[in-house]
Design a protein around this nucleic acid. Sequence first.
DNA 1: ATCTGCCTTTGATGCAGATCAAGCGAAGAA
DNA 2: TTCTTCGCTTGATCTGCATCAAAGGCAGAT
Lengths: 249, 249
Amino acid sequence: MTPPHDLATLVHDCAECPIRHRAVCARCESDELQRLEQIKYYRSYQAGQTIIWSGDRMDFVASVVTGIATLTQTMEDGRRQMVGLLLPSDFVGRPGRATAAYDVTATTDLVMCCFRRKPFEEMMAQTPHVAQRLLEMTLDELDAAREWMLLLGRKTAREKIASLLSIIARRDASLKLRAAQGSLVFDLPLTREEMADYLGLTLETVSRQMSALKKDGIIELEGKRHIVVPDFDVLLEETGDDSDGGFLV
Amino acid sequence: MTPPHDLATLVHDCAECPIRHRAVCARCESDELQRLEQIKYYRSYQAGQTIIWSGDRMDFVASVVTGIATLTQTMEDGRRQMVGLLLPSDFVGRPGRATAAYDVTATTDLVMCCFRRKPFEEMMAQTPHVAQRLLEMTLDELDAAREWMLLLGRKTAREKIASLLSIIARRDASLKLRAAQGSLVFDLPLTREEMADYLGLTLETVSRQMSALKKDGIIELEGKRHIVVPDFDVLLEETGDDSDGGFLV
DNA sequence: ATCTGCCTTTGATGCAGATCAAGCGAAGAA
DNA sequence: TTCTTCGCTTGATCTGCATCAAAGGCAGAT
């Protein structure tokens, strides 16, 4: 494993921040940004590190700057379900709540922009732009959660895998400022086990369905993680979603 | 079926509204309430009626005043998944969005307090209290959705049924201002098929597991809908949740 | 009183995905 | 080099829930 980056190099100016236009601070005016800069600090985590355990005290909220984090719930007997997949610009934590409701884990190397909770809450009360943006982001997350509920409750294993791949492909395309269509190439940011936790399956079923999609020419695999999608529309047909709509994530 | 109530009798004063302290208007000052009164109107629906179809234009947002509504998603081939269960004080619709994302259905006779969307959005932009409360409610719903995801992804049929019963029992108890413990009695507001749509099961499996819980003395059934829970803690043990936490709904 | 339609229960059977188990390949570590 | 570990694949078997099918109970209509 690589050591965490030097934190000092990460303390950007907000003006240069890669998630400036999508994160919880997206709507802030320059004076509001100045206030945020005073209470913010960066933290970085290595792939695989647990950021917070469910039930832990949590004195900050944060935005994901780079990398991917997950929210998971665990039952007493060890059954696990992922309930959130956090990408750059996504928000972690809940204003007004002092303890974490879920385990938060870095699945890749990760950098977060953290705000001490108390001053952040005060700022939310005093200026509208942070709260406005947070409402918008929360509504989007709720939509995503509902799409995910349909997946968990009613889709077959193959449809689940195809859906997850199409979500990741779409996000990767938008990150590269490309349209999600035709031929796409990307790296899976999740292990088979993490995919299983996302989809409510076992890792064996994930592996088998990946092999099946490969055999059917829907995807090509180079190594375990590198995915080629020859025709994105063909992948979409396997998701079970109606042709137009698709995922809102 | 009974005819809808006379709408005129439903036009309350907000001060007497039964959901005044929990709905999206909970934080409003009297001047804000006055503004809301100007743009509000009541609508009532019969049990079974569809309120909106997914994709329909939606020119209002609303609060459930009495009765129960559901949000469902349907796949092309007819598979259905409930993604929201709306109880009195819950909010319907999304500011800033003109079309419905889900089918909204009244599962019991229902009264909603509707606000025309445009003026409601203007009010959200101008006064903070509505937006503040809506953010809080949306965060709560997101937590509930995540709990539901764990249920859909990882629980057995028996655990799913026990979980649903405990949610309904808890809500019913809080409505009656009782503690959810010891012996409880309530009516199921959902058909077996609606329960199945909620839980990601078939109605036959729901029926079988209800019979099994009855046989094991976890619940007693009087008719199809009337439920007696002799000991709520025993029911909770069947949900698979850890003893303390439980559902946030 | 009987019919009709809807909701529900129960039984028989089938199958998708879980479980149990073995082994492969690549990346460090010794 | 060889060993160990970790993530992954594949095979054999099992099982929980879906599916297919039939019938019972109740409420409202005629």
